[in-house]
Design a protein around this nucleic acid. Structure first.
Lengths: 223, 223
DNA sequence: CTTCGATATAATGTCGACAAAAAAGATAGA
DNA sequence: TCTATCTTTTTTGTCGACATTATATCGAAG
């Protein structure tokens, strides 16, 4: 795709590396080094960094350059609390507003997660998990709310990728998903909201408790 | 303030002009024109525009430049629905967590609004209104949530500035504020949340109904 | 040995120019 | 007259160099 601009491609590459964990929180992003590495001038690098700053994956301090966003435990807790509420809202609106196609879509994705667990395919489960949350965002019929929730989730995804989750947690996660999906299919807004809030809160606890054991192993991303 | 960087000052200037209404939604921001106007090269202009894009006040389409963010009615409704929920959350957490100093601060600001109304000083009321909402954000004890709510509010502020509000609405607004503040002072999380959600929803209705009558008159910003 | 300050180094901020792409305008054909 | 295509013009994207500021290094004083 030569249609896209140079700085965009660079931004995408860097974004993936941050999400993948190649670039860790706190790592400084030197303009000249990046320019050398991508064999371009500093201009598209600057644009790419500003572009990335939009996603909050990196931060800029004037005259001090860019660095991969560093999040302390307190902020992490706050972000998860916010995410819990935001996803709760999405789930509520989803339960009240989703159309038949969207409900069926959600039901199918949930089944996909069930199958993944039966086959002990954690990669497939991670994908089903991501898809389920996404489907609920999409079905809340409020793009602004969806974008906000997605934004917070993306900011946290770099931590999801850093930690390993037990199969035990995955099974529990699927169970929580079941309750959420049931509420949604039953048009139970309050129930869906509560179930989702609890689900995200448990995920947060799980991830925050893992902080410190920074193994570089691949994560399933089960929440 | 020569301490600050050139692009930052330009970003601030443009930001004010957008918020003030000098630059209207849809207006294109030509790099060269801005460079000529500020008597600088295009580099700091580009940086300033990217900086502004961070706040969503302006939007970028690759190879098509920047333009003041244009928000259609549907999006506006979604944003207000999201803001209503977000401020409701802030109010709830504020009622449950605010310390004595913060509660006293909120009480005083509310009184300031009351005084402003007595003296028919709409400018003062607008300021008190802004301060009250800000104080509630600050006292929710979750910086992430505060930032998210503030972000949405800022995105909407350009519309607040576009429309004129009746003194009748201002009085009603203050009445709604009173209920919110009472709930907060009584540690009533549910009450504060509900009152705030209703308050923001009424504001939204008021503003959305004003769309179309684009008078350039100064607004009180009463919500 | 530690700490403060001056110098040296390296990074970001800014500049003007050229390249590439999109938008505007002109021309030819129907 | 309208449309489609080509040309011109404008605008964004990229480049390399210089200016300015922050950081690191080194030396001197306490």
């Amino acid at each position: 795709m030569t249609n896209t601009t140079l700085s965009q491609r660079i931004a995408n590459t860097l974004s993936e590396e941050i999400l993948k964990g190649d670039l860790k929180p706190g790592d400084r992003l030197d303009e000249q080094s990046l320019a050398d590495r991508f064999q371009v001038s500093r201009s598209p690098i600057r644009d790419a960094l500003r572009e990335l700053a939009l996603t909050r994956l990196i931060e800029q301090r004037p005259r001090r350059g860019f660095a991969v966003a560093q999040i302390e435990t307190t902020t992490l807790r706050n972000l998860y609390e916010a995410l819990s509420e935001l996803e709760g809202l999405c789930a509520r609106y989803c339960a009240l507003r989703a159309d038949t196609v969207q409900r069926e879509h959600i039901r199918l994705i949930h089944t996909r997660g069930q199958d993944a667990i039966k086959q002990h395919d954690m990669t497939a489960y991670a994908e089903a998990n991501r898809a389920l949350h996404q489907a609920i965002y999409d079905a809340c019929h409020n793009d602004a709310l969806r974008d906000i929730a997605l934004d917070v989730r993306n900011r946290l995804s770099m931590f999801h990728a850093q930690f390993l989750f037990s199969e035990e947690r995955v099974v529990q996660s699927q169970d929580e998903h079941r309750e959420i999906v049931e509420c949604i299919l039953n048009n139970d807004g309050d129930g869906a909201s509560e179930a989702m809030k609890k689900h995200v809160a448990k995920t947060a606890l799980n991830i925050i408790s893992h902080i410190g054991s920074k193994t570089g192993e691949p994560a399933t991303g089960a929440d």
